[in-house]
Structure formats: C-alpha cells, structure tokens
Design a protein around this nucleic acid. Structure first.
Length: 298
DNA sequence: CTCGACTCCTGCTGGC
DNA sequence: TGCCAGCAGGAGTCGA
C-alpha cells in the first residue's frame, strides 16, 4: 500500500541507480496496467539518459533527456525491484521467513514484472505489480502539472504551502467524514488509508467527525501531525543506497508498524488497553477500514 | 456540486 | 490439512 512516504523512498532508491544514467534497454511485457502503456514507451526509453526525479502526491516523475517525463503510480501492489543484469531475481520470503523458491539459478523473470529497464552500468530495474492498479504514462516535462492525473491535485503536505489555513479552506462546507476528505487527493496529495488513520489518531480527531467541523482549530492541530507522521516515516527509510536497494532487490522502504492502522483490539499508546479499555476500534467508512481510538479521538 | 457505491485485480487470510 | 470465499485498497466512473 504505497503512500507518500513509500513512494518517496522508492523514488530516492530509483534516483540512486538511475540519476544521470543512460537506459540501454527497455521492455514492456503486457499492453496495460490500470491504463494502457504508451505505445512508444519502450522506444522512448531506450538510449535515453535520465535527468532526474520528482514526486507529486503518490506519483513519481522520471525526467528524460529529450523533454518527456515518465509518470509512474505504484497503485496498490506496485513495487520496484533492482538487480544486476544477468542475475536471477531474489526469491521473495515466504510466510515463515524462508525463501519460497530455490535460488542461484537463472530462473524466469519475476512474476508480474510488467516493465523492465536496464542501464549502461548493468542495473536492471523492474516494475512488479500483481494487482495491476499501477500506471505508467509519458508526459512532456514542461506540461507535467497539466497531466490529467496531476491537474487539480491538492497541496503537497510536506511543503510550506500546506498550512492550517489552506486545509481549513478545503474542508469548509464539506459534509463528509474527515477520514474520507483526507483521502481525497484534491484536499491534500499523497495520503492513503494508513497515514490518514495514524494522523487522525495523533491529532486526537475522530475519523467520523464531519470535515467541515475540522476547519479551524482542529485543522491547526492536524496539519503538524500529518507532516510529522510523513516525515518520520520517510526518515525511517534511511539515507544510503544500501537502505534504498535492499539485499532482496526491493527498492524503497515499507513501514510495517503503525499507531492504530491494522491494530484492531490492541492497546493504543495513549490508553491502558484491554481489559481497562477496548483498544483500537475498526469501522468501515465508504467501504474501507478505519482504525481509531474511540477514547482519545473526538 | 457533492457524495457514496461500484469497479478493476490477485495474494493472503481465516473459517470450515 | 486443504480448499475457497472474502477481504485488501487507489482512484476513476457513474448515478443519486
């Protein structure tokens, strides 16, 4: 479930391997993910130098020599894997932590590896996405913000432009739960189910509260908590190539422990926990799980 | 305009 | 122990 912090660390990992490097080979192995791949994508990538990366919400933009940018969304299950050209994929760890495949042979490409690029230096980067909710598109670098996926997107939560005034304005008049409003990428860019739950817990705001009633003093409490939870998660991703491209080839860092997300019935850090307190509650809002502490979130 | 329901997809979990 | 239904969710579409 890559959200802003995961996308940021994946992008930094890709930059470590691709920034300033020339792509010598590219292959697309199926016609589409969520959307069709641009028909000329492989041709456009091959022989081209990568000039740099930036992130917008949950999207990564890889700027290419020649004026185009590759717009990448990891969707639900997308990940980037890096290995040396000619080396087999490292088997994924099974449920018991044991390798689920034999290693050390030249096996087939990793399952669900839909796009592959190779650099002059011998790195082979694969975009793996079993559920195919991800997307890849080409957009002129000068017109990145006009792409239909980016146009109308809300402020970057880690930028100075994301203030309590701005958030209040976006929430005013909205009669939907704050949980749903924060998932709306037009309100703020890059939050998903996990960090919305944790940010609301940190701010002591109930996910069921109407968005309009968060405008004002509660927004002033929420904005710094959104920034903090995202910054802390990015910082946990580390700062060296070793951190970004792991031994198993996974690019980026994926946090697995949260304050309330996926912790139904467990003690939250502000409460005594069961039996004195029922612990973290799970409810369903617009079809998705919300985790929160009914005692401390109002 | 605003909001919620539905949709896409496959891997994992849990209940029998 | 094995099977399989159901759940997971980002974001676009559609209808109320």
């Amino acid at each position: 479930m890559p959200e802003l912090p995961e996308v940021e660390t994946v992008m930094r990992g890709l930059a470590e391997v691709l920034d300033g490097r020339r792509i010598v080979a590219a292959a697309i192995t199926r016609p589409d993910l969520r959307w069709p791949f641009p028909p000329n994508l492989a041709a456009r990538l091959t022989g081209t130098r990568v000039l740099g990366f930036r992130r917008r919400g949950k999207y990564m933009l890889m700027r290419l020599e020649g004026g185009d940018s590759v717009l990448i969304h990891l969707g639900m299950s997308g990940r980037m894997v890096a290995r040396r050209v000619g080396e087999p994929p490292v088997p994924r760890l099974g449920p018991q932590g044991a390798a689920s495949d034999a290693r050390g042979h030249n096996g087939p490409p990793e399952a669900h590896e839909h796009m592959v690029i190779e650099t002059e230096e011998g790195w082979r980067i694969g975009f793996v996405d079993p559920r195919r909710f991800g997307s890849v598109d080409l957009v002129p670098t000068e017109r990145e913000e006009e792409h239909r996926s980016l146009a109308g997107m809300g402020p970057e939560p880690l930028g100075p432009e994301f203030t309590d005034t701005v958030l209040s304005a976006a929430l005013t008049g909205r009669f939907t739960p704050i949980k749903a409003a924060l998932l709306d990428q037009k309100v703020v860019a890059g939050l998903g189910n996990i960090y919305v739950c944790d940010a609301l817990w940190r701010a002591g705001i109930s996910p069921r509260r109407l968005a309009a009633s968060v405008a004002g003093t509660r927004a002033a409490r929420l904005v710094p908590e959104i920034k903090a939870v995202l910054e802390e998660s990015i910082a946990a991703g580390g700062s060296s190539l070793r951190d970004y491209v792991r031994a198993d080839g996974e690019v980026g860092f994926f946090q697995e422990r949260f304050d309330v997300y996926d912790r139904e019935g467990e003690r939250c850090a502000r409460c005594p926990g069961p039996p004195a307190c029922k612990g973290v509650a799970r409810i369903v809002q617009s079809g998705r799980s919300t985790f929160y502490c009914p005692k401390t979130q109002r």
